[in-house]
């Protein structure tokens, strides 16, 4: 196990959306702050920093995690996926993003990156999730704007796609 000095900055490297990235982090630096401030990838949002709102949700090694409850140094050497990596390779919105737009599943868009990542995670593991499974995932997020109806409609639509 790598030894870290609490007062020093350490070189951290991981794969972000398929690209190798690196930067410097004190051991206490949150992964959200590393992504946003060190790498300048501001798509991942911070709403509470106590694990409840879900705005900061990203995927690490194929699992959804709360970026605000994760240290940057823990991500060293791993595979990190964020909202910036969702669009199709040609830059077009992917099916989930398109469904969000169609169903007006976002207003301010602040909760949206987290929801997209949690649902991406759900669809990656369960291509045809049940209503209860969708509810379970969306229920792990707070959205202040939409009343969740559009989010549910978008998720249902993607779940029903062949």
């Amino acid at each position: 196990m790598r030894e870290l000095n609490g007062a020093a900055r350490h070189r951290i490297g991981f794969t972000l959306n398929g690209r190798a990235v690196s930067g410097w982090a004190e051991p206490r630096l949150l992964l959200t702050d590393f992504l946003r401030q060190e790498l300048g990838e501001t798509g991942t949002h911070v709403g509470c920093e106590h694990g409840i709102c879900g705005a900061c949700t990203i995927r690490i090694d194929g699992r959804a995690v709360r970026g605000c409850l994760y240290l940057a140094v823990q991500a060293d050497g791993r595979e990190v996926q964020t909202v910036e990596g969702l669009a199709d390779p040609d830059g077009a919105l992917n099916a989930l993003q398109r469904a969000f737009r169609k169903h007006h599943a976002l207003q301010c868009g602040y909760c949206t990156p987290g929801l997209l990542m949690s649902l991406t995670d759900l669809f990656a593991r369960t291509p045809r999730p049940s209503e209860a499974q969708i509810l379970d995932v969306v229920g792990g997020h707070l959205c202040r704007c939409t009343g969740y109806a559009g989010i549910m409609a978008a998720a249902r639509e993607v779940a029903a796609e062949p």
């Binding site: 946003r36 501001t42 911070v46 910036e84 737009r101 007006h104 868009g109």
Partner: peptide, 19 residues
Amino acid sequence: TERTEDLRLLRGRGQYADD
């Protein structure tokens, strides 16, 4: 009409104050 705002927000390319 679907929103133009969504085209940047869904890509994580919004321009919020802290960004």
